[in-house]
Write a protein that binds this DNA or RNA. Structure first.
Lengths: 197, 197
DNA sequence: ATACATTTTCGACCGAAAGTCGATTTTGCA
DNA sequence: TGCAAAATCGACTTTCGGTCGAAAATGTAT
């Protein structure tokens, strides 16, 4: 009796794609079951509610990003580069969005929020580890690491997620990061080059 | 033909109270009209939609807070104290909430978000003015003021709105603020005393 | 006061969308 | 082959925001 597991994964995949491309609020349970070719009852055999489906979908997304983040943390690039890499990874999949910023639209606040919350709690420990590494290397110098890391993530999320940010935002963000971590001015400056795509 | 205006204000007041105490999602149009003692149609004679009602309610809230913020900005307390005062004013009315953190609950993300957005855009210019004042007084020293102010607001909102924050959070926030604004260490330290109520 | 126009009110009705449930089919296994 | 568990079905229910045409209240010009 393993058929069920596959079915659930299939539904999860469909929901995942639809939630991201059309948004959570714009996706009806009807849409999902239509594409899957199943009946309402079957859907609710696998999920308690639409919101629980969202929860699981987000779990999938975050897991992927956590994977990427851990890989970056373990790689042998410089600590500042790790930080930038992880922060970049730590945002909702920006590919596969047909309509501009579908994720951040008013209709999708619920999803956006849940993502942010989970991302935050999962990502802080990893980033904190990297910062400690930086402290050992004497690149950084600060206390209360988790709190500082959290603030960095909060700001990066709010400023960069919307897609609308200026060069000045980046500049200030770099400055803030360096000071927050007690780094020498210029340590994080390479971010600038990365951003200008 | 002025009767209508009064009616609308009445509805706005009821909605305001209900949205804050029970949350937006938990308040049905039915609830509002029941308390007002009117029919569905009457409600929709005054509002295009439930969401538009929310918009107007939020407008009311923010207006009040803007008023307070402007007063603080114009008063003759010290610049750092103004900043703290304004930031404190710049958050959703924390009184009149029966259930703990009703505003931030998952059901109320929509409202919470709209509030934050409006608060942010309205508050940045005022705070920026105050920071400039501080620069003139040589207390602060920084460029890109609006961007820096925005980051302060973002962090304060995210960290302090939930009600769940530690002493360390405050400590780091103070440190961040000082560095973000180019203030001497200790300039903002009095916040600590304020927070410990 | 009368008639006509405008504003305000009413509440039955609509439609969308999530969620329920008992019946039925499929599947694994003894 | 037969039975229990798993999986599927789809009609039905509920909830809730929103619509609409009719009616009542109010204002205004003659």
């Amino acid at each position: 009796m393993r058929k069920g597991e596959r079915r659930k994964q299939e539904l999860l995949q469909i929901a995942y794609r639809m939630f991201i491309t059309r948004g959570y609020e714009n996706t009806g349970v009807e849409d999902i079951i239509e594409e899957a070719g199943i009946a309402k009852g079957t859907y609710y055999y696998y999920f308690e509610s639409k919101e629980q489906t969202l929860e699981e979908v987000i779990g999938m997304m975050i897991d992927e990003e956590m994977e990427a983040a851990k890989e970056i943390a373990a790689s042998d690039i410089s600590v500042p580069q790790k930080i930038v890499g992880i922060i970049s990874a730590a945002r909702p999949t920006q590919e596969e969005q047909p309509i501009e910023g579908a994720l951040m639209r008013p209709e999708n606040v619920l999803m956006h929020n849940k993502i942010r919350q989970k991302l935050m709690s999962d990502m802080v420990p990893i980033l904190a580890k990297v910062v400690e590494e930086g402290i050992n290397e004497k690149i950084f110098d600060c206390d209360n690491i988790p709190e500082r890391v959290r603030m960095m993530l909060v700001v990066s999320g709010e400023i960069f997620d919307e897609g609308q940010f200026t060069e000045r935002d980046v500049e200030v963000f770099i400055d803030m990061t360096e000071k927050l971590l007690g780094a020498k001015s210029g340590t994080m400056n390479f971010i600038n080059k990365l951003i200008k795509r």
